[in-house]
Amino acid sequence: MIIGVLALQGAFIEHEAVLKRLHVECFEIRKPSDLDRRMDGLIIPGGESTVIGKLLVDMDMMNRIRKMILDGMPVFGTCAGMILLARNIVDGTVGSIGTMPVTVRRNAYGRQLGSFSADGSFGDLGGIQMRFIRAPYVDSVDKGVEILSVHEGKIVAVRYGNQLATAFHPELTDDDRVHRYFLSIVESSTC
């Protein structure tokens, strides 16, 4: 199994470190030719969604990645990655991949003073620690979207087919269960 990690801007090394701990091969995607390599799944990290979205367009990678996801390639987006996957953004014009039928609110908890960590639960995994950094949350979802985590009434983790998105950052904790959950999606889509 090989995972591509989008490495245009943000905390991509943190995801690579988790994959390394899990002994999963990965490589960084910085330019169009990197998309020619074989990959079984894609991770879109935290960072600034405006920056990553702009670079995806300017580097001619947006449409190719959108097509790969629509063709079924598993993808996992955290924070900025969730924003980029969302079909709609409240008050927003961020260039987005837009493959997930959800509406996301950017900077939903305010500025850095609003960043926080919380204990929550995730699908069948049970309790996890969630770290929210100038985080978004999901305002609403269309049919077919599975809600995996809710914090104080706000949706913070969703799955739509092979697409997984979290408003928080599992890659910043020692707990790799959310990554293993994503890898199980990759596993079942490749066999």
Binding site: A7, L8, Q9, G10, A11, F12, I13, E14, G46, G47, E48, V51, C79, A80, Q112, S115, F116, S117, Q129, R131, I133, R134, H169, L172, D174, D175
Partner: peptide, 25 residues
């Protein structure tokens, strides 16, 4: 998991915001 004091947690969140800015201008 080790319990963090609220100051340690805040410092962690602040370090993590800087991590989100990496490879950026």
């Amino acid at each position: 998991m080790k319990m963090l004091s609220s100051d340690e947690n805040r410092y962690g969140l602040n370090r993590e915001l800087a991590q989100m800015l990496k490879s950026g201008v």
